[in-house]
């Protein structure tokens, strides 16, 4: 708590420590929350989410406003703000 205030006060160093909450919404409408730092690679969220859901990460697709989020992007690069939502779609298949 007081940590947060410190970061705001210290300027430059603040941004590195500042965490935001990102909401991951699945196709049933369920939301899962992750606290992340602005420079955390999104793949960390992806694998944590996959683990929590018990699904291989290769079967999940993460999207922001209709575009794919790459594993090596960060919240900062994606301009994600606190409480922003990303979508998670499941693998689809078809043959016949």
């Amino acid at each position: 708590m007081s940590d947060n205030e410190d970061k705001v006060a210290t300027g430059e160093g603040e941004e590195k420590k500042q965490t935001i909450t990102i909401r991951v919404k699945d196709q049933s409408g369920e939301e899962t929350f992750f606290k992340v730092k602005p420079h955390t690679k999104m793949e960390k969220i992806f694998s944590a989410y996959a683990q929590r859901k018990g699904v291989p990460v290769t079967a999940l697709r993460f999207l922001l406003d209709g575009t794919r989020i790459a594993a090596d992007q960060t919240p900062k690069m994606l301009e994600l703000e606190d409480q922003d939502q990303i979508d998670c779609a499941l693998e689809q298949v078809g043959g016949w």
Partner: peptide, 26 residues
């Protein structure tokens, strides 16, 4: 369109705002 995006558009855009964000993003 990425099929995952089609799926997202069908199942996860609950309101017009979500759809507009998607339309804008694409």
């Amino acid at each position: 369109m990425d099929p995952a995006v089609v799926s997202c558009m069908m199942l996860q855009c609950d309101d017009e705002e979500d759809l507009l964000d998607l339309a804008h993003g694409l």
